[in-house]
Design a protein around this nucleic acid. Structure first.
Lengths: 233, 233
DNA sequence: ACAAAAGTGTTACACTTACACCCATGT
DNA sequence: ACATGGGTGTAAGTGTAACACTTTTGT
């Protein structure tokens, strides 16, 4: 097999975009920004950046996430490559997209309020420039699959959370309602939750407080190594 | 958000590799070739080809598959992008890999015998140049996942096959033994198999012939649309 | 008749689903 | 006392897993 590159072959540019999910206790959301230069000036886009020829896309994507959030408490994973020859009008640009999850906090919310990004509900994404709506659609499918098989949801929740919060998150990600008793039974049976003994009032209107749980990461890692699969069909 | 490409950013080349699976009734195999020019001259590699800056990788990958097999009776799907900056010594080359399945036949076997490719058992892959072993590992995981959820296996089998053949295929893909009775019950319950009424002797030593089945593609498409998931854990 | 692979059922257990009321607390 | 969301159990059905022998056919 003869494989040979000519100088003409080295004329492609790389970019990366990230789909960043957050969950505010009510809705699943993701971050979008606005393009400030041509092409597509003024259009909504995913957080994106050029990847220089010597750079590694995952590192660039991580750096982008760090620049958005200001810290490192998140999960990131490769999504896909978007390589349609005409996806970018400025030339041949191959986009290597990632998706990640953020643990929302007041600090982060405030930071973002003064940044160039804003949250939109994951089930009401506005039209985006380039093929970014395709990227978002793809990431939603992936998130759904991940939520079904891995306890990824915990990375979207506060470190301590109520069972109702996590149920709501699962309902958002899976796009359907779940039975409260069955959901709890299943989750508790996995023994991946630690009851902190603490309680919290979920809203001013809620009189009775709910119990707070933590995710047992150490146990999960052990189980993972043994091939454990947390499956929620 | 300001995203701007400078001319210097357009210095990346693209390539594509395909992982082609076949099943001969005994073992799951895949195709590899030998590099005839530097770098890595003489080393084993996946079937690979340069993607020109104006080309679409999926079309190039399909053309590569066509050139290998001589016909169109196969399935192909994007696998992943391999973008480590130093994966290729000749420069920055991003590889967009695909995997596919072939329906082996005597004609195809003969064609390949005179080609630059050869079959190796999927569980005994020799060391390959570049990061091609990573690509193969990734494709194996993908195949495993696909086999679990979709009746992809049929695309590796002859149009008419025995239940023992398909069980053997599943055992190869999943990497473990399955109970014959349970496997048959599950498969037949899905009602995706049509009993042709015909029989075949699976080997010269087998005295009793086995029944031949066909995959009901039409029914599968209908069920797919309804969100049916064929799950084999 | 024998060798070889094809084919076939049952039982115990685990998991899933559907379903409705009482509880704890703050106001 | 009442309003609010928090929390709980059971029963029927479905799917899974483990298990060994009989049947058919060619030689």
């Amino acid at each position: 097999m003869h494989i040979e590159f000519s100088p003409d072959d080295f004329q492609v540019a790389l970019s990366t975009s990230v789909v960043l999910y957050g969950f505010d206790g009510e809705d699943l959301k993701l971050l979008i920004g606005t393009k400030t230069n041509e092409p597509y000036k003024g259009a909504d886009v995913l957080p994106s950046v050029v990847v220089k020829p010597k750079e590694d896309p995952i590192l660039v994507a991580r750096e982008l996430m760090r620049s958005i959030t200001g810290f490192d408490d998140w999960l990131i994973e490769r999504l896909n490559v978007f390589a349609d020859p005409y996806r970018n009008p400025v030339g041949r640009v191959v986009n290597i997209a990632y998706y990640g999850t953020l643990r929302l906090s007041e600090d982060l919310e405030n930071d973002l309020r003064h940044s160039e990004y804003r949250w939109v509900k994951a089930d009401h994404i506005p039209p985006l420039a380039y093929d970014h709506n395709d990227i978002v659609d793809y990431s939603k499918e992936r998130l759904k699959r991940r939520v079904k098989r891995r306890p990824i949801g915990f990375s979207l929740l506060p470190r301590e959370f109520t069972l109702n919060q996590i149920q709501r998150l699962y309902e958002c990600a899976l796009g359907r309602e779940l039975d409260k008793r069955n959901f709890r039974r299943k989750l508790l049976k996995s023994e991946l939750l630690i009851d902190t003994g603490k309680t919290i009032r979920s809203s001013p209107r809620a009189k009775r407080p709910s119990g707070l749980f933590r995710f047992d990461e150490k146990k999960y890692r052990t189980l993972s190594l043994e091939g454990y699969d947390f499956v929620y069909q």
